[in-house]
Simulated assay, not measured.
Amino acid sequence: MEIREARANDRPAIRDVARRSMQASYSLDPTAIIGAIEEWYDENRLRNLLEDDDKVLLVAEHKGQVVAFSDSVITGESTGEILWLHVDPDYRGEDMGLDLFKATRNHLASIGAGNLRGRVLADNAGGNAFYENRGLVKIGEETVDIDGTPYVENVYAEVEAERMEPVELDDGETVFIDRENEETGSIAPFYIVYTERDAEDIYGYWCGKCDQLANAMDASGRIQCDECGNARKPTRWDAAYL
């Protein structure tokens, strides 16, 4: 299987996959599905989608045939939303959807959209379970118009990424504060600061009292804020603190 950006000659296959996927996944009237496909994926919209820098259309190709695709959009400075993720029913159960989801998430992150959201109609039990199994959390509901009829659409997000607060330091570097991940200080909490939004590498600690970086830590794990004196006790044994 190859996952790649869509091309103009993929348009008929994209419409066919969308139609077959919606027929298998949603309890919608067949005429509504056909109307939706014509509205969302007609020649002009697909052409504009492929030319728009804020839109991302990836396809999964198996033996030269497009069998799945994801339709995403950049909605903010660092947020990408998967609007639709369709897999041909004949290719479900082969991790096609999971591989496409991962590739879409990585692609969005590579162009600066580290916050991931996903949308799925409320009556698609399998689609909702898919996002929940990926660790995304339902954060709200909206409506989407399908052939003139409104339907409830659930919105999911990677909460870990959503809660990261970007802060630009004096040297111009941007770090990310996780205010839900804290260490107890003598005056106020210390919040963990990461080098990237994915929260893999710790940069230092943020003082909750004076709201500034308190990056000094000794070998025993003691943190001290030079501005206000807020301190975290050492996490490892050291004779100096007996």
Rank of each mutant, 00 (worst) to 15 (best):
I33E: 06
I33K: 09
I34H: 11
I34D: 06
I34M: 05
I34C: 02
I34S: 13
G35F: 12
G35H: 10
G35E: 06
G35C: 10
G35N: 13
G35A: 06
A36Y: 13
A36V: 15
A36D: 04
I37G: 01
I37H: 03
E38F: 00
E39T: 05
E39M: 10
E39V: 00
E39W: 07
E39G: 01
E39A: 13
E39I: 09
W40S: 09
W40K: 02
Y41S: 05
Y41F: 12
Y41H: 15
Y41C: 03
Y41K: 13
D42C: 04
D42E: 04
D42H: 01
D42F: 02
E43T: 06
E43Y: 05
E43L: 01
E43D: 12
N44A: 07
N44L: 15
N44Y: 03
N44D: 05
N44T: 04
N44R: 09
R45N: 03
R45H: 13
R45D: 08
R45S: 13
L46F: 03
L46Y: 04
L46D: 04
L46P: 01
L46H: 05
L46R: 09
L46M: 00
L46C: 13
L46W: 00
R47S: 07
R47D: 02
R47I: 05
N48M: 01
N48A: 15
N48F: 05
N48H: 06
N48R: 14
L49V: 10
L49P: 06
L49Y: 15
L49E: 12
L50H: 04
L50Q: 00
E51Y: 10
E51H: 04
E51R: 04
E51G: 06
E51I: 11
E51W: 07
D52F: 07
D52R: 12
D52H: 06
D52C: 06
D52A: 15
D52Y: 06
D53L: 12
D53E: 15
D53A: 12
D54I: 12
D54F: 15
D54K: 15
K55H: 11
K55V: 07
K55F: 12
K55M: 13
K55P: 01
K55S: 10
V56C: 11
V56W: 15
V56R: 13
V56A: 14
V56Q: 12
L57G: 08
L57I: 11
L57F: 00
L57Q: 08
L57W: 02
L57A: 10
L58D: 10
L58Q: 10
L58Y: 08
L58K: 14
V59L: 11
V59A: 03
V59H: 08
V59S: 10
A60V: 08
A60L: 13
A60G: 09
E61H: 13
E61S: 07
E61Q: 14
E61R: 10
E61Y: 15
E61I: 04
H62A: 13
H62V: 11
H62D: 14
H62Q: 02
K63M: 11
K63E: 14
K63I: 13
G64L: 06
G64C: 01
G64W: 08
G64M: 07
G64T: 07
G64K: 12
G64N: 08
G64I: 03
G64A: 00
Q65T: 13
Q65Y: 04
Q65L: 04
Q65A: 03
Q65E: 11
V66T: 00
V66K: 03
V66I: 03
V66G: 01
V67D: 00
V67F: 03
V67I: 01
A68R: 05
A68K: 05
A68M: 09
A68D: 02
